[in-house]
């Protein structure tokens, strides 16, 4: 008891920043008791979010997303591939999540960040299980024996997501930027050349396009996610890196725009996530999905005006 009183006396004398560094959990809990967070947000509120489409000129589709300080840049390059024998009329989607050393002091060159393959896998699983994209839409030439090089051909979407600033909720930001880049993606027009190779059509060539003109992908129900932290009986939406490091129980919930639950991810952590807590998280995610969809729709309509 005496020890806790002594540390309380000490905290009153110390500068706020020093107290925050020495006793981070107690610093946060003092805020939580007032139902507010150190950055001034209510517990269930996400950070300010912005979406910019067409951030990379050299890509077929791209998006820059910021959630607070967390920044993700996604760019898509389309490549022509020969589809697999199991699904000859389908293209494919490959997602790579990168955490270069610029994004955080924890990430050092040489060894890739631990989170990179985990987030890559989660993103791939989420986007494929949401059935947001019909991979048949990516088919170009199907089983036409007249074509020499490609008996069948399809597009493969190579999606690279770069984390430029890691300040918590990496999966949420990565998913938004992946989805935003797909919504911005324009499938390029391609044609078959004399050698039977599929090439991009430039305006002046007299080549007959295989796939009509540039077009957008049809996105069905779009998935969005929200990561929450469970600490005692508090639920904190959209945590910062500092909050993630102090409070270890995370729940990531993915819902699509039609309100269906796509995935739920709770990797361990000391706090037991009761059903009621998870339902509360789902409720918060539902609100967040509506918010994010409106941001994306607004940005897409702004892009159409520009075009």
């Amino acid at each position: 008891m005496g020890l806790s009183n002594a540390s309380e006396d000490l905290s009153s004398e110390m500068e706020v920043d020093a107290f925050r560094r020495l006793f981070p959990l107690r610093y946060f809990e003092r805020h939580l008791a007032e139902s507010i967070r150190p950055d001034g947000r209510p517990l269930g509120k996400a950070r300010e979010t912005s979406i910019f489409l067409g951030a990379v000129a050299s890509a077929n589709g791209s998006a820059l997303v910021k959630i607070g300080s967390t920044t993700m840049l996604t760019a898509i390059k389309m490549e022509v591939m020969t589809p697999s024998l199991e699904s000859p009329d389908e293209g494919c989607l490959a997602i790579d999540f990168h955490m270069p050393p610029i994004c955080s002091p924890i990430v050092r060159p040489g060894r890739p960040a631990e989170a990179s393959p985990v987030v890559s896998k989660q993103l791939s699983d989420t986007i494929s299980s949401s059935r947001m994209i019909d991979l048949k839409e990516l088919s170009l030439v199907g089983g036409k024996a007249a074509w020499m090089a490609y008996l069948n051909a399809a597009f493969s979407i190579m999606q690279d997501i770069y984390c430029l600033d890691a300040d918590g909720a990496l999966f949420d930001a990565a998913l938004i930027s992946a989805v935003a880049a797909l919504s911005h993606l324009q499938i390029p027009a391609v044609a078959m050349n004399d050698d039977g190779k599929i090439v991009l059509v430039s305006g002046e060539d007299g080549q007959k396009p295989v796939n009509k003109e540039k077009r957008k992908l049809t996105l069905r129900s779009i998935p969005f996610s929200l990561t929450c932290i469970l600490h005692k009986n508090y639920i904190l939406a959209d945590p910062t890196a500092e909050e993630e490091s102090i409070m270890e129980t995370h729940v990531t919930i993915v819902l699509d725009t039609s309100g269906q639950l796509i995935s739920l991810y709770k990797p361990g952590g000391p706090a037991l996530a009761y059903t009621s807590a998870i339902q509360d998280c789902v409720g918060l995610t539902g609100q967040r999905v509506k918010e994010l969809k409106s941001y994306l729709d607004k940005e897409n309509s702004a892009m159409e005006v520009v075009v």
Binding site: S58, S62, K77, E79, D160
Partner: peptide, 15 residues
């Protein structure tokens, strides 16, 4: 002093 230069996969014409 240490330095690392890296190009994003999408930074050039071809991935």
């Amino acid at each position: 002093v240490r330095c690392e230069y890296c190009m994003a996969n999408f930074s050039t014409g071809d991935r």
